[in-house]
Amino acid sequence: MVAENSTPHLHSAVEPKQTFRRALDMSSRAAMPSLFIMFSAILLSAPFGIPGQAQLQFGIAMCTVWFWAHSRPRSMPALAVFLCGLVVEIFSFGPPGTVLLSLLVIYGVAHHWRYGLSRLGFLMGWLIFSIFAVLASFFQWSLVCLHAVALLSPAPGLFQAALTIGIYPSLTALFVWGRRTFANPDQA
């Protein structure tokens, strides 16, 4: 069973008429995860002075891509991940390309293992995601060290990984609700 299957009562023989408005509604619902990443990346680049803003940008993008890539890949195609990654890259000032590459790698993993992940359950999925969040933060840290030609403290990277892992359950709850309601193209 793949989680991208929609609710059974919507698979009736009688389909609603495909109008322009419905097509627009469906595509906006399908684009909801990507728009969420872009909107939060732009919003979190504003000078609110909230601690961990930059780390949240990375964390939200990682969690969103991971969830939708294995839960409903149609709502998160590879090209959308690339565009989201570019937006996050433009609105952050880390070493170029690290967030984009991390998002694509985590997308590849989640998409490739989506059948296995849907059987594993939440806790196991969270654990696997945590490993990749730590690896992505480590990769970012090593590139920052390479840019600076110095061994910098890994504490910010660890904080970023911890924040990414920590926000995953609450974001998953939001996405599970969204998958049934506002981000479900079948309900258009």
Binding site: E89, P95, P96, G97, T98, L101, G108
Partner: peptide, 18 residues
């Protein structure tokens, strides 16, 4: 092919950044 292609582009961006 699209995902490996995009990953290659991302690696290109990392190298460009360096």
């Amino acid at each position: 092919a699209i995902l490996p292609l995009l990953i290659l582009l991302a690696v290109g961006l990392v190298l460009l950044g360096l």
